[in-house]
Amino acid sequence: MNAIAGVLFHFIGGFASGSFYVPYKKVKDWSWESMWILGGLFSWIIVPPIAAYLTIPNFWEIIKGTDSSILGYTYLFGVLWGIGGLTYGLGVRYLGVSLGSSIILGLSMVFGALMPAIYYFFNQTPGKHSIDFFFTDPSGITVMIGLLVCIIGIYLCGKAGMLKEKDLSGSTNVVKGEYNFGLGITVAIVSGLLSACFNFGIEAGKPMADVANNLWKAVNPNQGEFLYQNNVTYIIILWGGFTTNFIWCLYLLIKNNSFSDYSNKKAPLGKNFLLCALAGTTWYLQFFFYGMGESRLGNGASSWILHMAFIILISNAWGVVLKEWKGVSKPTYRAIISGIVIIILSICIVGFAKTLE
């Protein structure tokens, strides 16, 4: 039951992450930086402490009692992840929701899943899988198979993107908009590598989650692991993410004189504010449910792979729903659909792996 519940929680988190950019696409007459930083205030500053307070009332005492080195590393990984999140928005902007998310999150999935395991190979820690687990244990081998299958699905999504570019460049009936494969792929690679730092941040801040978990278990004995233990760790990680994004967006707001967006009477201000708040809150929900899924599956490669795979799946599904592939050739459409199907298969394989432990 724990495996099923964990997969379900990761699906909900993946749905939230794969859907968060959709409200942004409805924002009118605002620059990218205006809507991104406003949504980010909800993602990184407003919603996380509210969620922590509702689930861990003494969360601030846990933070104050944590060693400064743990807080520092957790914050640092948040800063690096923030750069990945910042460039994620640009990658989606230039590649579209489906293709941009596939490439960025695919790279993040691979690095986020394997790098901690390599670290634990050289620094053995009870309860943590090192890289040899994925080549010697039946469950670990199955996880690796699922990861490889997912990479194939990501490759097909990327291939579909390149075919799409050819289709659009040769068509006079399709508007390309901001689609730019060259610039988008560069940004996507940087974003994918740095986005993996969120998982590193969770690892660095695990002592805070352990305190929250132990306090809850003392009051609720024999009831398993605390579903919301990571909510205290997220606060520090997201402070780091906010720092990066705030500095960049402030620079763009000043450079482009975008502050005027917030008083632009031609723009639907109320609607834009609500859409940004919805987008930001939805983005945070991915972390909220990731923590719940992790409490059932463990903070390891399986949780990270499932989370990323679900996000890629939902992002590509939104790409189809939003008609980002409208007007492309049949081979291009078959490639993106095949990629989606194979990613679904990889999710099933990784979910099955947890039953073998």
Rank of each mutant, 00 (worst) to 15 (best):
N299P: 08
L274C: 11
A113I: 03
I62R: 07
V110A: 11
Y251C: 07
F133Y: 14
G85T: 00
T74V: 00
N245I: 09
S139C: 06
A113E: 06
H129Q: 13
F42N: 02
L148V: 13
L107N: 04
I131K: 08
I336C: 07
E203L: 03
S68E: 13
K206P: 13
Q286C: 09
P138E: 04
V341H: 07
R93D: 13
V232K: 06
G351E: 03
L148C: 01
G127D: 10
A188G: 03
V190K: 05
M109D: 11
Y262I: 00
L250N: 06
F121S: 15
L8K: 00
A309E: 11
G13T: 01
C197D: 10
S346R: 01
I342Y: 06
E165L: 12
K176T: 12
G201D: 00
K64M: 12
F134H: 06
M1V: 13
K164S: 10
I104H: 03
K255H: 12
V321L: 15
Q124N: 13
I349C: 02
I152K: 03
S139T: 02
K166F: 08
F121I: 03
L306H: 02
V328T: 14
S17G: 09
G106D: 01
K354F: 02
I347R: 00
G18R: 00
A209K: 01
G241Q: 01
S108M: 09
I311K: 12
Q223L: 09
N173T: 11
Y24F: 15
W32T: 15
S68A: 14
W325T: 08
G6I: 05
W30N: 02
F15R: 02
Y88W: 13
T172W: 13
G65Y: 09
F288E: 00
V320T: 12
I305F: 12
P23A: 08
V92Q: 14
R93C: 09
V219I: 14
N230E: 15
S130E: 13
N123L: 02
I343Y: 02
S68L: 15
G91N: 08
S98W: 04
K164G: 14
I342M: 09
W216S: 08
I336L: 03
G82C: 06
W283Q: 06
K176I: 13
E225L: 12
A218T: 06
G240C: 05
Q223Y: 05
W239T: 01
G84L: 03
S338Y: 01
G89D: 00
F198P: 00
S346K: 05
D67G: 13
F259A: 06
A218Q: 12
